[in-house]
C-alpha cells in the first residue's frame, strides 16, 4: 500500500556501475582487505620476531623489503600493518556512522529545542580543527589504540549527524511521509520503515570516502607515537622507525609509504566511484 508512494526514493538493490577509477579502487581495496584478513598466512615472518644481527638490511630474497632497526622483516610488518589500519578504520567509521545516524535522526525528527542544541554542539565540534581536538583528547586519556578509536569516532560524528539531519529534514517534508502520517503511522514506523532506508545510502558513500582519511589519521598519529603503541605493526610506526634510521637505511621509509599511499588512493577512488554512481550531487568537504 505504501510501496507505491515511496517507490521513487528507494533505489533498487544492485551493484553500482563503477567507472574505471572506481573499479581500480575496488581492486586495491579488495587486495588490502584480503591482506588484512589473511595476514598470518601470507606474511613470511613473525612481524614481532627480533633478529638484531640482521638489522636494517637491504631488500633481498629472504627479506623482500629489507629489515628494520631491530631486524624485524619489513614486509611482514607492512602486511600486519594492513590489519591494524583497516581494523581501526572500519571499526571507528562504523561506530561513528551508527552514532551519527542516531543523533542525526533525533535532531532531524525530534523536538525543535533538541535540534537547536544538537546543531550548536555539532557546529562547535566541527569548528575545532580536527587534529587539535584529537590531540586534546589524547592528552587527557593517554595514547593507545582504544583512545585512537574513540578520538576518530568523536571527530567524525558531527559530520555524519549533520548529513543525516539534513536528509531527514528534507524527507520529513516529502509527500510520501506526509501521506503515511495522515494514514496514522506512528513516529517509530516512519523512522524505521521510511526515513532509515532512505538516509543510509548517502551515509554509506560518505563513510567510504572517510575511510582513507581515518587511515591517514591513524598512520599520522602512530607516526607521532600518539596512536597505536609499538611494537604492534602499524604503517605509522614503521614510517617512524624508518624516519629515525633514514640516513642508514632509506628503504624502510620508502617501503612503508607504499601500502599507505596505495590504500588511501584505493579507498578514495572507490569512494569517488560510489559517489559518482549513486549520488553525484553529494558534496564532501575536505577535513
Amino acid at each position: 500500500m505504501s510501496s507505491a508512494a515511496d517507490a521513487p526514493l528507494r533505489r533498487p538493490m544492485r551493484l553500482p556501475r563503477l567507472g574505471p577509477m572506481g573499479s581500480t579502487g575496488a581492486v586495491l581495496v579488495a587486495a588490502f582487505l584480503l591482506m588484512a584478513l589473511f595476514a598470518p598466512w601470507i606474511s613470511p615472518y613473525d612481524p614481532l620476531k627480533l633478529d638484531v644481527m640482521n638489522k636494517l638490511q637491504d631488500p633481498s630474497l629472504a627479506h623482500w623489503a629489507g629489515t628494520d632497526q631491530l631486524g624485524r622483516d619489513t614486509l611482514s610488518r607492512l602486511i600486519w600493518g594492513a590489519r591494524t589500519a583497516l581494523g581501526i578504520a572500519l571499526t571507528s567509521t562504523g561506530i561513528a556512522g551508527a552514532i551519527g545516524l542516531v543523533l542525526g535522526l533525533i535532531a532531524g525528527y525530534g523536538p525543535r529545542w533538541l535540534d537547536g542544541l544538537l546543531v550548536l554542539v555539532f557546529d562547535s565540534l566541527s569548528s575545532l580543527p580536527m587534529i587539535m581536538f584529537a590531540l586534546a583528547v589524547i592528552t587527557v586519556l593517554g595514547p593507545g589504540t582504544a583512545t585512537l578509536i574513540l578520538v576518530i569516532v568523536l571527530v567524525s560524528i558531527p559530520g555524519y549527524a549533520r548529513l543525516i539531519r539534513a536528509q531527514t529534514l528534507t524527507l520529513k517534508a516529502a509527500d510520501f511521509i506526509q501521506a503515511e502520517r495522515t494514514m496514522g503511522a506512528g513516529p517509530a514506523r516512519i523512522l524505521l520503515r521510511h526515513l532509515l532506508p532512505n538516509v543510509v545510502g548517502p551515509l554509506v558513500i560518505v563513510l567510504s570516502m572517510d575511510v582513507p582519511v581515518v587511515i591517514m589519521l591513524e598512520a599520522g598519529l602512530s607516526y607521532l607515537n600518539l596512536g597505536v603503541k609499538p611494537p604492534t605493526p602499524s604503517w605509522g610506526n614503521i614510517l617512524y622507525d624508518g624516519y629515525t634510521s633514514l640516513r642508514q637505511q632509506p628503504v624502510l621509509v620508502a617501503a612503508a609509504g607504499v601500502p599507505l599511499v596505495l590504500s588511501t588512493i584505493g579507498f578514495t577512488f572507490l569512494g569517488e566511484g560510489l559517489r559518482d554512481a549513486l549520488d553525484p550531487r553529494l558534496k564532501v568537504r575536505p577535513r
Binding site: 591517514m216 599520522g220 607516526y223 614510517l239 624508518g242 621509509v253 599511499v261 588511501t264 588512493i265 579507498f267
Partner: peptide
C-alpha cells in the same frame, strides 16, 4: 588521497 606526511617523508 595521498597523506601529506608521506609526501613530506
Amino acid at each position: 588521497a595521498v597523506p601529506s606526511f608521506v609526501i613530506a617523508l
